[in-house]
Nucleic acid binder design. Structure first.
Ligand SMILES: [Mn+2]
Ligand SMILES: [Mn+2]
Ligand SMILES: [Zn+2]
Ligand SMILES: [Zn+2]
Lengths: 147, 147
DNA sequence: ATTTTATTGATATTGATTTTCAATTTCAAT
DNA sequence: ATTGAAATTGAAAATCAATATCAATAAAAT
């Protein structure tokens, strides 16, 4: 269970489990969303009216450092955080109309990527692969609109 | 020849060919680099000491709008501009040690990407593919250092 | 309960990008 | 060559997300 793992991490680092952290973690970690700090801050305020933006910001950084979240930055150039569920690597397609983020994973693509890197004697530590365009719904809407 | 194409573009849009634009274009368009505004500004100052940062910035935007340059933004989160030579699409590997940027193109990868998109009924307009890691030189240096 | 030290939240700062605006330059029409 | 309307310039200011600061507060070890 995530809560215990996190407590262990905090203890190990000499950090403290505050109400703010506890609540943020409860709210964030089971979701399957890509939060901006602002978005999570707005949601947290409903549960803890006094909570500060900086606390949400720092807690997300903490979760990344602890390995419970990933930091992402898409084309709109705001940092987003997503809870890390398993050790699943995945990439993203982002709809430029509605903002929907679709996750995907493709082994063949990963293998091909490694091949390209090897060809250039490049040692990949991480990669970024994002598609931008229209999701199914938005594309359908566009087609109808054109008629 | 690029100069004439650009003059045509300016005329068509009711824009003017200033000394600043002329010099920036001469300096920038034949290079094969990924410039930040700051970098190009520093180089331009040597040729036109009075030139302003904003002018370099605006001229790069203009070149993008005219289709003579591409805007890129890698992990270091500064906007870079590269002259567009042909209609070549390419992606990048970036060395996190020395900053070297290696360009590559892989048809098989592109095809695979389109397949993945189709599977999700996603209509790709553009994509971003970047590798981060060590270039050959830096990796070799690292290996030697470890001994 | 006391003490130590991490944490919080309000606010200030940073740094890249973008905008503003008065002065200047371009260029088409005299 | 001169003019004048309109685009452009450069300095400075505004923007905006991300990050740092710091006095007040809260956690947890003793
Ligand atoms: Mn994701
Ligand atoms: Mn390039
Ligand atoms: Zn959509
Ligand atoms: Zn390198």
């Amino acid at each position: 269970m995530k809560e215990q793992e996190l407590k262990d991490y905090l203890k190990e680092k000499g950090l403290r489990l505050t109400h703010q952290r506890e609540n943020i973690i409860k709210h964030f970690c089971d979701k399957n969303k890509h939060y901006t700090v602002e978005e999570l801050y707005e949601e947290m305020k409903k549960e803890m009216p006094g909570i500060g933006f900086a606390t949400v910001y720092r807690t997300l950084q903490l979760l990344v450092a602890a390995g419970f979240a990933l930091e992402r930055r898409f084309k709109d150039d705001v940092t987003r955080f997503e809870p890390l569920h398993k050790n699943d690597h995945h990439d993203h397609m982002i709809c430029i109309e509605c903002g929907r983020i679709i996750e995907f994973e493709n082994k063949k693509l990963e293998r091909l990527k490694d091949g390209v890197a090897k060809k250039h004697n490049f040692c990949i530590l991480l990669h970024k692969l994002e598609f931008y365009g229209y999701c199914e719904k938005c594309r359908n809407k566009k087609i109808k609109g054109k008629k």
